[in-house]
């Protein structure tokens, strides 16, 4: 018994590359859910210990340095994901800029 199951060679969506992309997307959806589940559990536990108030968390408006930090992170994420198909090359200068994020 091999104890190894092969991935299918056939395509379910008409083209192998399309299957690959949807497979990646579905894996990401799973990871996204695991993270959301964890954040919800985290909020619940912190609230139980009276360290946070979930309502206050929802009502909270970031300001000042925190607002700037979130903006930087958000813009970097958008540029990285939305810009991926348009990235013609990479160099030291553009990569070094990413060191400021996260």
């Amino acid at each position: 018994m091999s104890r190894t199951v092969d991935r299918p060679e056939r395509s379910y969506l008409g083209q192998q590359e399309l299957d690959d992309v949807v497979r990646m997307n579905t894996e990401l959806m799973a990871e996204l859910w695991i993270l959301r589940d964890r954040v919800t559990v985290l909020e619940h536990l912190l609230e139980q210990k009276q360290l946070i108030d979930r309502k206050a968390l929802s009502e909270f408006v970031p300001e000042g340095e925190l607002a700037k930090e979130l903006e930087r992170e958000r813009n970097a994420l958008v540029a990285k994901v939305a810009g991926a198909p348009h990235q013609k090359h990479y160099d030291h200068a553009s990569l070094a800029k990413q060191a400021d994020v996260g």
């Binding site: 579905t26 959806m29 799973a30 859910w33 695991i34 589940d37 964890r38 559990v41």
Partner: peptide, 13 residues
């Protein structure tokens, strides 16, 4: 948590 949430995701899918 990771294992539980990952399998629950599959159930939903």
């Amino acid at each position: 948590q990771r294992g539980r949430a990952g399998l629950q995701f599959l159930g939903s899918l």
